[in-house]
Amino acid sequence: MDKFADMEMFVAIVHHRGMASAGRALGLSPATVTARLQNLEQRYGVKLLNRSTRHLSLTDAGALYHQSCIEILESVRATENVLQTGTTEVKGPLKISAPKDIGKQYIAPLLSSFCRKYPDVIPFLYLNDGLSNMAESGLDLVIRYGELADSQLISRKLATSQRVLCASPQYLADYEEPESPTELMAHQCLALIRGNEALQHWYFAANGEQQSISIMPKRYSDDGEVLRQWAIDGEGIVMKSILDVQQDIAQGRLVTLLDGYTKNFSQVSVGQSADLHVIYQSRDYLPKRMRLFLDHLYTAFDAKKNGL
């Protein structure tokens, strides 16, 4: 019974999202992978994967085992490298997901500077606004706005932020500036698509009272950077995180609106933080490349906060 081989097989199943594809990657037949997975579940007396003909998903026990497998295998590889070379190398993949604006403006340049220092680290940067299941996606780090819902994940604030409404001076020359949220219903608004849902219900809070506005968007996109550019081009009003547009505001390309209100896309989160966070699965064991990049990330955002 080779527990390390079983761990590698289980990680491969989750990574490849299927037993047949995991078997091909490992040089094993589908029947062998299936039998070994069944033996693994029988050994521990728990179900690790929910299986159907088209889909695999981790159970709670499976998510715990998967994370432990990753940590143990990384630790073994690092130890073997130290024994063989006498050094702890910084190498391997680093998989990060970030919103498109913040990813392009901040995270991509930070990855470039980090990889110039550690050229054996291979970065994967996924630009999207959704928070997928970290265990199943294989992501190392997720950069997201807002508070953390999953208490099993580790979250650390990178920067203070808030949602703002903004439009270009060109747009405001053609349309009278709104003085209350209800006036937005008569304006050209730009809506973000998240998943399969258009976020066209905007929520506002002021003086202890909340209200929601159903906008009639002029344009839609699932790319926050596209919405930002449309706003700069004078096409309408957009809701963005201040970090995404602070340079545009400073340089006069965009102007903020309804500054006396707290704003968000969700009634639940309208009064909550919209700060930027980095999220990961465990602080008990992190590969050296992850620890070093987190330090790189914290240093960069601390410098930005202090105006350096």
Score class of each variant (00 low, 15 high):
119 P>D: 11
55 H>K: 15
207 N>K: 13
147 E>K: 06
163 R>F: 00
84 Q>W: 04
86 G>F: 12
106 Y>V: 02
283 R>S: 09
146 G>W: 00
74 E>T: 00
20 A>H: 11
287 P>V: 12
163 R>H: 13
213 I>E: 15
35 A>L: 14
301 F>S: 07
269 S>G: 05
263 K>I: 08
12 A>Q: 12
100 K>E: 10
175 Y>F: 14
88 T>P: 01
265 F>L: 15
82 V>C: 07
37 L>S: 05
19 M>G: 01
29 S>P: 04
238 V>H: 04
303 A>C: 02
265 F>C: 13
121 V>C: 09
72 I>M: 13
131 L>W: 02
168 S>N: 10
304 K>E: 08
188 Q>S: 11
196 N>C: 03
154 I>H: 03
244 D>H: 10
66 H>K: 10
7 M>H: 11
280 Y>T: 06
74 E>R: 01
123 P>F: 03
39 N>F: 00
122 I>C: 07
144 R>H: 14
10 F>D: 00
55 H>D: 10
237 I>F: 07
230 W>Y: 15
254 L>A: 06
14 V>N: 06
72 I>V: 14
92 G>L: 05
75 S>Y: 02
272 Q>W: 00
154 I>Y: 01
283 R>K: 15
103 G>R: 15
63 A>M: 13
302 D>N: 08
283 R>L: 14
100 K>S: 06
23 G>I: 14
214 S>M: 15
246 Q>A: 02
255 V>S: 10
123 P>G: 07
250 A>M: 09
276 L>D: 07
199 L>G: 05
181 P>W: 00
169 P>A: 13
242 I>N: 07
243 L>N: 13
165 L>H: 09
148 L>H: 03
256 T>I: 05
148 L>E: 15
224 G>D: 05
169 P>S: 14
244 D>T: 03
199 L>M: 12
156 R>T: 00
244 D>R: 09
233 D>R: 14
152 Q>L: 02
193 I>V: 11
233 D>P: 07
180 S>W: 01
142 V>D: 04
97 S>L: 14
172 L>V: 06
218 K>V: 09
286 L>V: 04
55 H>E: 11
133 N>D: 13
87 T>V: 10
219 R>H: 08
225 E>L: 12
223 D>N: 03
30 P>K: 12
289 R>V: 06
21 S>D: 15
113 S>D: 05
3 K>T: 11
225 E>D: 09
86 G>H: 11
143 I>P: 03
31 A>K: 10
245 V>D: 01
262 T>G: 08
304 K>T: 03
94 L>W: 04
10 F>G: 05
256 T>H: 05
